[in-house]
Simulated scan of single mutants.
Amino acid sequence: MFTSHDGLCSIGELAEHAGVTVKTVRFYSDRGLLPEASRSVGGHRRYGPDALDRLRLIRSLRSLDLPVPAVRRILDEEDAAGGVLEDAVASRLCELGSQLKALRWREAALRLVQECPPAERADRLRLIGAVAAPPSTAPLARFWRGWLPPRMPARSTAAFLEVAVPQPPDDPDPAQVLAFARLNAFALHPCAPGAEQPQPEAHRTAGARGSAVLYAGLAEAYELAGVQLRRDRAPYPGEALDSFVAAYVSAYGARDTPDFRRLLARQLAADPRIDRYWELVAEVITPPGGRTEPTPGSAHDWLLAALDAQTAAAAA
């Protein structure tokens, strides 16, 4: 391709053949991506026949927005379709995914401000200004770590957080952005200033190890109740309720009797509530225009209503 007597070309000729500027060729050369074959007597760079293909490959890789260090690693690998390229592309896709998610959240947040009544804009700006884009679930996880029994096994805590902390949707509508912002604010300030966060009686009764058993059993019961919620079934005694009661029986080392169920119903009715948290979770996870998705909170309410109905019927 090069017509010089030694088969080499100057930096200007290489740039012309590749359709780039001399400055671009020099940039890649200075960073070791495009080695020169030799220097002329006057100290000018000279490039071999393979330089053009290498430069075109560099441009292709850079057009994918791969950073220079990643391009260098790919070029150092003999096969450009090898593992280094796959890893670099996968890493870049992950970065782009995060960037796109952040942009979609910012777009929905802007629409939220644009579409709300002027009197509400200051409050909404305050709420969404406290949430990163893409949003972090760290405040929600911290809220639950303060709520859960101290010294509960890490594996049990992680399993509970997986169902209690909603993942922000990748492509939210303004209502979901507002719900998540309100959820974030709730998690940061769940109680009045100076007040302690109330704990359920079950945490004190079961202890750390017992609570691990309790929450594992409750997860199963909530899943069964969620099936009934999706079917719009009214609360009723059945498999889900039996699983719910069994979780407390196992945690307390008790027996499942009518008296136990009556005592449990009274205890749960007196326990502190965080209904607002679960209401906001439902708004975050429910797709626009879709049916409200069950949450552990709504499942708990369904099961408690079934327990109340059963104990009331037994008393009558």
Rank of each mutant, 00 (worst) to 15 (best):
D76M: 05
G48T: 06
L14R: 01
K23D: 12
S63W: 13
H44K: 10
P49E: 09
L33D: 04
A70V: 02
L34A: 04
L75V: 04
L14E: 01
A80L: 11
G48D: 11
L75R: 01
H44I: 06
R45C: 05
A15T: 01
V71E: 00
G19D: 07
R45Q: 08
V41W: 13
P69F: 05
R45S: 04
T21F: 00
V20A: 02
L33I: 08
A18P: 03
R54C: 03
R56I: 06
G43Y: 13
V71G: 03
Y47E: 04
P35L: 00
S29H: 15
E77F: 12
D53P: 10
G48L: 10
I74F: 00
L66G: 00
V25A: 00
A70G: 04
A37S: 14
E78P: 10
H17I: 09
R46D: 01
D76K: 03
S40Y: 08
L52N: 09
S38K: 13
V41Q: 15
A18V: 06
L34E: 00
R39G: 11
G48Y: 06
G19E: 07
E16H: 08
K23L: 10
P35I: 02
A37Y: 12
G48M: 11
P49S: 12
L14F: 04
F27E: 01
Y47F: 15
L75G: 01
L55D: 03
R72D: 03
R73F: 05
L55I: 09
R46N: 08
L64P: 06
R62K: 14
K23E: 13
P35G: 07
R73G: 01
F27L: 09
S29K: 10
T24Y: 05
T24G: 04
T24W: 06
A18F: 03
D65C: 11
I58L: 05
G42L: 12
L57D: 00
G42P: 10
A15V: 03
R73T: 02
E78R: 14
R59T: 05
A15F: 03
A15N: 05
V20K: 01
A18Y: 03
H17V: 11
V22N: 03
R62Y: 06
K23T: 13
T24L: 08
D65R: 14
G48N: 12
P67L: 07
I58F: 02
D50M: 12
P67S: 12
H44T: 10
S38L: 11
Y28K: 02
Y47A: 05
V22A: 05
D50I: 10
S38Y: 13
V41D: 15
E77W: 13
D30P: 00
I58P: 02
V71K: 03
G19N: 09
D50W: 14
P67W: 04
P69C: 07
T21P: 02
L66I: 08
L34W: 02
L64K: 09
V25G: 00
E77T: 09
H17E: 14
I58D: 02
D53Y: 14
P69R: 03
G48V: 05
L64H: 08
L57Y: 00
L33V: 07
L61V: 04
T24Q: 10
L34H: 04
R72V: 00
G32L: 06
R59G: 04
L57H: 01
P35Y: 03
